[in-house]
Amino acid sequence: MAKGLSRQKKRDLVAYSFIAPNFIGFAVFTLVPIVFAFALAFFNWDGSNPITFAGLSNFKQLTGDVFFKAALKNTIIYCIGTVPLTMIASLALAIVLNQKVVGRGIFRTLSFFPYVASLVAVTSVWKMLFHPSKGPINNILYTVFHVPMEQLPQWFTGGLVLVSMILFSVWKYMGYYMVIYLAGLQGISAELYEAASLDGANTWQKFQYITWPQLRSTTFFVVVMLTINCFKVYDIAIMLAGGGSGELTISSTVLVYYIYQKAFIDWKLGYSSAVAMVLFLMVFVVTMIQFRGQKKYQ
């Protein structure tokens, strides 16, 4: 009994020794400030003056905040649009580019371009392409589809701005998740496919019974990261929809923009943390559901 315990302890120690190098740095530089920020949601603080306890007042204030509600709604819509689209697109691209295709290396590199290129540069291009009066997209709508001038879509304002943001983000991050999927595809044993071929399985069946289940942890990772990154959308909104002073209107504002604004423009760090808590809880719930889903499969 005593011996068993010590073996378990020894095992724990070995495990901890693996984690320690990363965890110590992580705990000191990230975890501590985050826990502090968490607590801030229940306080009022401007970063300099003494902290005062606020109880739940920050959260109460949220319920009547027009901008917060708009930001919440926009963020959720953006996530619902972006997560599945990006996942499907990147998986499809990864599968295609994992096959023996001529110029595969070039195609892979090209798919990675949007991700590495600076956001300032690529958003400028997008804004030109979708320019409401001079852009080629609206030009085609006007000349080919005879959409009247006044009815040409305003891609960066009103209801369409979220659509533009979703399309942009799928395009920009597709290559990124494709790379993750590509790495995941390497882990699938060739024998599985060979066996399936012998059984006369077609491409779709192979995907359904081998690729998809085998990519389970990769997909879990991709979906979780996608969800988190979508909830954290910020600079895309600013660059695509920001007005003259970088401000976002009610139809394009997103949670992290609001967090940023409350923290660094208004210096209401407590209130900003309260918004972040809402963001965190949403990500948490979504992640937990996915976690359950992944467990169930196993």
Partner: peptide, 21 residues
């Protein structure tokens, strides 16, 4: 006192009016 918040709100609705939202 709350000039930065007022400023942000005015900026935002200025954008809404000018863009026709």
């Amino acid at each position: 006192e709350n000039v930065s918040e007022i400023n942000s709100a005015l900026d935002s609705y200025h954008g809404s009016i000018m863009s026709g939202e």
